[in-house]
Amino acid sequence: MTTTETVHDRIGTARDELTTGQLLAVFAFVAALTFALLFLQEPLAHDSMHNFRHAVGVTCH
């Protein structure tokens, strides 16, 4: 029972498999997507997503 994996092990595995740069790239990409999708305030893009924002419960009128 000593082989139980922990969250710490997973971080270690990720570190071994990927460079810090690759990890940062993955997280930065997800963060950028979130930002673009939800908080993009450029009026045309923002208004085009009007129905979507209502449907997912995120609006700002």
């Binding site: 139980t4 994996e5 922990t6 969250v7 092990d9 997973r10 971080i11 990720a14 993955v26 997280f27 997800v30 997507l33 979130t34 999708l37 893009a45 085009s48 997503m49 009007h50 129905n51 979507f52 449907a55 997912v56």
Partner: peptide, 27 residues
């Protein structure tokens, strides 16, 4: 655009879900 955003929203949640699952699966 709202339909397209809906598809992207699923992809975003799926990707974020997988990253979180990878790290938190043991917990």
């Amino acid at each position: 655009v709202s339909i397209g955003s809906g598809v992207l929203w699923g992809i975003l949640l799926g990707g974020a879900f997988a990253l979180a699952f990878y790290f938190f699966e043991p917990a």
